[in-house]
Nucleic acid binder design. Structure first.
Lengths: 359, 359
DNA sequence: AGAGCGGATCGAATCGATTCGACTGGCGAA
DNA sequence: TTCGCCAGTCGAATCGATTCGATCCGCTCT
C-alpha cells in the first residue's frame, strides 16, 4: 500500500481477469488463450490479445503462475565461496556456463547462492523459490539450509559432491586422473614427489598436508586427487594451498622449493592447473628451470596463456559437467531419476615434465 | 498431479494451516508466530513451533509468500554475453561480487540472466520473477524483454549503461581516466599513439577502428574511453579487439606492432588491463622491450600477476560499483529514487610507460 | 465503577493466475 | 433420426500464504 500513490504511472496493473472481462470471455478461457494449453478459437484468441494490448497487459504474473503450478522456473546453484572467490576458478565458471546454458534450454534460470555471504545467508537460501538445487563442490550435508530445502521436497544434484543415497552426483575421475599423472612421473624416474593440494575446507590456510587435515576435509576433489597421487607415491607429502589461484600456487611452490637442493622434490603434483602454473612461476623465481630442474603436473586442462610452455596435465570436461548437471535437473523435474555420472579425463602431454635431473 | 503417487516419501507437504490447526490457533496467528510481524504470546509461539516440528513443516512456502507480498526476493542481473564469456572479465566478476554481497545483506538473491542464450532467452527473462533488474553494460533498450519488465513495473538499474531518463546509472569516469593516461603519455613526449579498444558491439571481430564502427557501437565504455584518448590525441587510430582477454590483446598488439619500425607507435592505449597485458606479451613476442621500446597503459586496475612488471593504468572500483548498484536496488525497492553515480578512477603509476625511444 | 487502551487472537478477503469438471452446439456415424 | 463425440467455453475450486479489521479480555486511570 502507499506504493500506488507514489507514482501515478499506472492506476493498477491489469490482471488476466481484467483482460478477460474486456474481451468478453471468462478468465479460464483467457488463460488458455495465453498459454495455449487447450483449444481456443482463433477469433477468441484474437479478441483476448487485443484486449491485452489495450490494457497494456504484459502477460501472466510469474509469481501467481508459480504458486499455482508449483514451479518457479529457477534453479539454485550453490557455490562454496563468495562469488568473487569462486569465480576466479575457470573450472567453476565453465561448469556454471554449461549448467546455465542447459537450464536455459529448459526455460529455467540460474539463481546464484553462496554459502558464505556474511551471515544472513541461510535466510535467503531457505527462502529461495527454487525448483531444484545444484551443489558445486559442497557436500549435501554442508548446511542446515540444504536439509530444509530437501525436506521441502526440492531435488538436489551435486557436482563433485559426496556420494549420497538418492542424490545424483556428477563427478570426474579425480583419482584416476591424478594417478595417471603420477604414473608418468614415476615412469620417468621421479621418486621425490611433493603435492600442492586444493584447500581441504572452505577457508583453508597455506599449511603442510597432514593426515588429520585430510580426514577433516570437506572439499571432495582435494581428497580424491590426493588419494590418486598416493596410489603411486604412498608417502608423498605436500602443502595445502589457500585457494586455487596462480598466486596460491606460487606461494605453495615457494615453500616446497625454497629449501636446500637435497630436500627439494624433483617433481610436484599440483591439484589444479592454476596451482601448477603458480608452481612453475615459483620455480622461475628461484632460478629453477622447468622441466629440467623440476617437473610439474596440474589438473583441469584449462589453457594458461601466460605460461612459457604448455602444462602437462589432464583435461576434465568442465562445461560438460555443467551440461550434464543441467540435464539431470531437467530430468529430475520431469519426474525422472537421473543417475550419477563420472566423466573421464584426458591426458595432455604438455612440456612441463622430464627426466629428473641427475643429483 | 501424479507426482504425488510417484514417490511415497511424503503424503502431502504440511501447510501453515495444518500447523495452525494442530496448534489450535488460526492460520493468521500461526503466520504471525512465524514471521514475527505482530504480537503473539510466548506460549502460543511455542505451541506453533512444536506443531511445526511434529508435522515437519519447514516454514512458509516462498512462492505463496511472494504472491501475497508481491516480492520474490530475487534481483536479476543481465549480462551481455554468455556466462563463460562474461565471466572471463575480472571487472564483471568483481562487480557481480559486490552486487551479490550487497543484495545478500538486503535478503535478495541474484538471478543470472544472459542476453545470449540460444534463442529461448526472452521467454525466461520475461517470465523471471524478479523484483528488480540490473543491467551490466547493456543499454536499457537492448531487448524487448527489458521493456516488458519495465512496463510491468520492475525497476531497472544500469551499470555503465546509456544514460536514460528515470533509470539510475552507476558509472565510472571512463573518459577522464583515459584522458589522464593519455596525458601522461603526451607529457612524456609520445606523439605516435595507437588504441586497442574493447569490442564495440556484442560480438565484434578484430578490426581497425573506424568512425562508422564507433558510431554504431553499443558498448558504452568502449566509446567513452575512445573519446577520452582522443581528447588528447585527436587523430589516434587503433584496433578493435574481439574481446577483453589477454589473448585478444596479444592478437591486437601483434597487428599494431608487427610492422616496419617507422610505422610502429611508441605507445599503446589499451582499454582494459587484460588487453594491455596482451599487448605487453605481443611486444615481447616481437622482441620489443616494455617500456623502453613501447609504452603501454591499460584500464581497470586489476592485478595481473604473470606480467613481469606492474601495469601503468587507472584503477576503477569495480566491486564498489556493484555495491552501489546493490544499494540503489535496495533503495528503489524501498520506494526511494536512487541517483546516478559516477565513480572516479585512481592513477596507478606502474612501470610500463617511459620516454619514447629516440628514433 | 466506567471509560479507555492495548495485547492477543480470529475470520475472511486477497494476491493472480491455472485447471478440472460440466455444459453447449454442431457434425459425422450408425 | 438418434447417439456420441469433440471443439469451445465457463464457473468454481485451488495453490499457500499475508493482512486488515473486528473482537475479546484484562488493565489502568480517574
Amino acid at each position: 500500500m502507499g506504493r500506488r500513490s507514489d507514482n501515478a504511472d499506472a492506476e493498477a496493473r491489469a490482471t488476466l481477469s481484467d483482460v478477460a472481462a474486456r474481451a468478453g470471455v471468462s478468465p479460464s478461457t483467457a488463460s488458455i488463450a495465453f498459454s495455449g494449453q487447450g483449444p481456443v478459437s482463433d477469433s477468441t484468441k484474437a479478441r483476448v490479445r487485443a484486449a491485452a494490448e489495450e490494457l497494456d497487459y504484459t502477460g501472466p504474473d510469474p509469481l501467481a503462475r508459480s504458486l499455482r503450478t508449483g514451479r518457479s522456473g529457477i534453479v539454485g546453484a550453490l557455490i562454496p565461496q563468495r562469488i568473487g572467490t569462486s569465480f576466479r576458478d575457470p573450472v567453476i565458471i565453465q561448469t556454471l556456463d554449461g549448467l546455465a546454458e542447459e537450464l536455459g534450454q529448459g526455460g529455467s534460470g540460474l539463481l546464484l547462492l553462496s554459502e558464505r555471504t556474511r551471515d544472513t545467508d541461510r535466510v535467503s537460501i531457505e527462502a529461495a523459490p527454487v525448483d531444484a538445487l545444484v551443489l558445486l563442490g559442497c557436500g549435501v550435508s554442508s548446511t542446515t539450509a540444504i536439509s530444509v530445502l530437501r525436506r521441502r521436497g526440492v531435488p538436489v544434484i551435486t557436482i563433485e559432491g559426496d556420494p549420497e543415497a538418492g542424490v545424483a552426483n556428477i563427478d570426474v575421475d579425480n583419482r584416476g586422473g591424478t594417478r595417471l599423472l603420477a604414473g608418468k612421473l614415476r615412469d620417468l624416474g621421479h621418486r621425490d614427489v611433493a603435492l600442492v593440494t586444493l584447500p581441504l575446507a572452505i577457508a583453508d590456510d597455506l599449511a603442510p598436508l597432514t593426515a588429520a587435515a585430510l580426514d577433516a576435509a570437506t572439499v571432495r576433489p582435494a581428497v580424491t586427487r590426493t588419494h590418486g597421487a598416493r596410489d603411486v607415491f604412498p608417502d608423498a607429502q605436500g602443502i595445502v594451498a589457500s585457494g586455487s589461484t596462480i598466486a596460491d600456487g606460487r606461494a605453495a611452490g615457494r615453500v616446497l622449493l625454497d629449501v636446500p637442493p637435497s630436500d627439494r622434490p624433483t617433481a610436484i603434483i599440483a591439484q589444479s592447473d592454476l596451482l601448477a602454473a603458480g608452481v612453475v612461476f615459483a620455480a622461475q623465481d628461484l632460478g629453477l628451470s622447468v622441466p629440467r630442474d623440476l617437473s610439474v603436473v596440474g589438473f583441469d586442462g584449462i589453457r594458461i596463456d601466460e605460461l612459457p610452455m604448455p602444462l602437462t596435465t589432464v583435461a576434465q570436461p568442465a562445461q560438460e559437467k555443467g551440461t550434464a548437471a543441467g540435464r539431470a535437473v531437467v530430468d529430475l523435474l520431469d519426474g525422472g531419476r537421473p543417475e550419477s555420472r563420472c566423466f573421464p579425463v584426458v591426458f595432455e602431454p604438455g612440456a612441463t615434465i622430464a627426466l629428473p635431473a641427475a643429483r
